[in-house]
Amino acid sequence: MLMTPKETRMPATDLLPLAGKAAIVTGSTSGIGLGIARRLAAQGAAVMINGFGNAIEIEKTRGVLAAETGREIVYDGADMSQPAAVQAIVDHARRSFGKVDILVNNAGIQHVEPIESFAPAKWDAVLAINLSAAFHAIQAVFADMKERQWGRIVNVASVHGLIASPFKAAYVAAKHGVIGLTKVVALEGAEHGIACNAICPGYVWTPLVEKQLEDQARSHGIPREQVIRDVLLKQQPTKRFATVEEVAGLTAFLCGPDAASITGSALPVDGGWLAH
């Protein structure tokens, strides 16, 4: 018997492919997460942003996003390392939007240290934010997505979910775990209209990376241009940073109608890093 898709296109316009959808983007008050929130809203979705920072600045960011896109933008300051707070942000989104169609797990932290001195508390914190938070958030939205027979989950992993670098034990372990989780969720959601994918960026130009650039230049005693080429971008053949907009564009595509058959994938945005 020929099996046909339950849904060939989302009920939206080409200009606003996410019209009528509601999204949560964790870790989205700056950097990659903010870029993703902006792109989803620009394509028609109501968006809940999340993250830490100055309350006045966050409200300004929320207001600017709403004004730019004409969408409903809501903020929740949940600490994603706490399972109860993860459930609470999902409940908040349901109260605000009536549902959660799209979940982007972007919240993450990093710690760099040799294994023999890697602080157990740092290991626990990195795993909690980078991996466990994604599981708890997915669990909180999954049943409703199955009931509606539609959902999009995008996990922002890393090129370090596919390869390793020294001194990043917790981060590499967590990001590998995120990709494994992505595959399991994709299999469990496949017959229910739920697609789950992971994005694996290399170095992306963000304020956080810019600060790291200055720190590396001081530590190595070399010019920032040399840090860019010989330290940060050593493994990226393009010798350029990916942009927030590039990552946001791929995320929005994965949430849209043309990506319905893409699920369980780990998609690099790495300037050719993995082609070595």
Rank of each mutant, 00 (worst) to 15 (best):
I153H: 09
I153F: 13
I153R: 04
V154N: 02
V154R: 01
N155S: 11
N155V: 01
V156F: 04
A157Q: 00
A157D: 08
S158P: 10
H160T: 12
I163T: 15
F167S: 09
A169I: 12
A169N: 13
Y171V: 09
A173H: 03
A174Q: 01
K175Y: 10
H176V: 11
G177A: 09
V178Y: 00
I179Y: 03
L181P: 01
T182G: 10
T182L: 09
T182Y: 09
V184N: 04
V185L: 09
V185M: 13
L187K: 15
L187C: 00
A190S: 12
E191V: 07
H192Y: 14
I194R: 01
I194H: 04
A198M: 03
I199M: 08
I199S: 01
C200K: 03
G202K: 01
V204L: 05
V204G: 03
W205I: 10
W205M: 15
T206K: 01
T206N: 00
T206P: 03
P207D: 14
L208F: 05
V209I: 15
V209M: 10
L213I: 05
E214Y: 00
Q216D: 11
A217F: 11
R218S: 13
S219E: 14
H220D: 12
E225K: 11
R229F: 01
R229C: 00
R229P: 00
D230L: 07
L232W: 08
L232Y: 02
L233I: 13
Q235K: 14
Q235R: 14
Q236F: 14
K239E: 10
R240M: 12
T243G: 10
T243N: 06
T243K: 13
V244L: 11
V244D: 08
E245N: 06
E245I: 04
E245P: 01
E246S: 09
E246D: 11
A248L: 12
G249V: 13
T251G: 07
T251H: 04
T251S: 12
C255H: 05
C255F: 07
C255M: 04
P257W: 06
